[in-house]
């Protein structure tokens, strides 16, 4: 079990340097999608339009933060031998709650993202953060970590959705922005478009940060 225990000092400031790093690292240098290459399946599936992508981002943020918090609170009580199933149970319950709330209040969106909301359970980012961080850190730090990781995920899929909807449908949030004369690029509405854009984002990011894959 790999853990990233960050040594906490006593009476640390609410937004100390270390805590800021917990939030900001996953946004760029340690991004779950572009660097750790996790959560790709949903990044491909939901990003053809901005609206479902935004809902998906919010749902994932909710699930990561609360599962991180709950697991972190219970981290000393959770029996080691069944910790994965306990984590799964917590994540699955949160996901079902999100799904039910969407069905009740955002029915149209839930028809589009419904299938994928269920798949948040298997989103590697969620389980990855629980195992790597929440099991070994205090609740407040875990919330920050959840925030960082989910925003790292959210901005990448929102950027992908922005370009896919713009070039694939000529719209943004279903509002027409490109002139009618623009011929929609069908490639962008298929998952292939998402691969291309994620690839480009990774390329730009690695060129800028000088990140090299370890052999």
């Amino acid at each position: 079990m790999s853990t990233e225990t960050v040594a906490a000092k006593k009476s640390e400031a609410l937004f100390s340097k270390r805590r800021k790093a917990i939030v900001t690292d996953p946004l760029d240098d340690d991004n779950p999608v572009t660097v750790q290459v996790l959560g790709i399946c949903s990044a491909l599936a939901v990003t053809s339009k901005l609206e479902p992508t935004l809902v998906m981002s919010i749902a994932v943020t909710f699930v990561i933060i609360f599962s991180n918090l709950i697991v972190s609170i219970l981290r000393n009580a959770i029996p080691q031998r069944i910790r994965i199933i306990v984590q799964l149970g917590i994540v699955a319950s949160l996901v079902i709650i999100v799904d039910q709330v969407l069905k009740a209040y955002l029915y149209d969106v839930s028809k589009v993202v419904g299938v994928y909301v269920g798949l948040i359970i298997t989103n590697c980012i969620v389980m990855g953060r629980l195992e790597a961080f929440a099991m070994a850190n205090k609740p407040y730090d875990s919330i920050l970590d959840g925030l960082g990781s989910s925003f790292g995920y959210a901005w990448v899929i929102l950027v992908v959705a922005f370009f896919r909807e713009l070039f694939g449908s000529g719209t943004l949030f279903d509002i027409r922005v490109l002139p009618e004369a623009y011929v929609n690029n069908g490639l962008m509405t298929s998952p292939v478009g998402a691969f291309i854009i994620i690839g480009l984002i990774i390329w730009v990011q690695r060129a800028r940060n000088g990140y090299v894959e370890e052999a």
């Binding site: 069944i82 149970g89 917590i90 079902i96 709650i97 039910q100 069905k103 029915y107």
Partner: peptide, 25 residues
């Protein structure tokens, strides 16, 4: 004991959510 308690608590929360949102859905 932990597994049983977790099942009961999570099950309770989920059925409460389902019942309270059912009408609206």
């Amino acid at each position: 004991g932990f597994a049983v308690a977790m099942t009961v608590i999570l099950g309770g929360i989920l059925s409460f959510t389902a019942v309270s949102l059912n009408e609206r859905q």
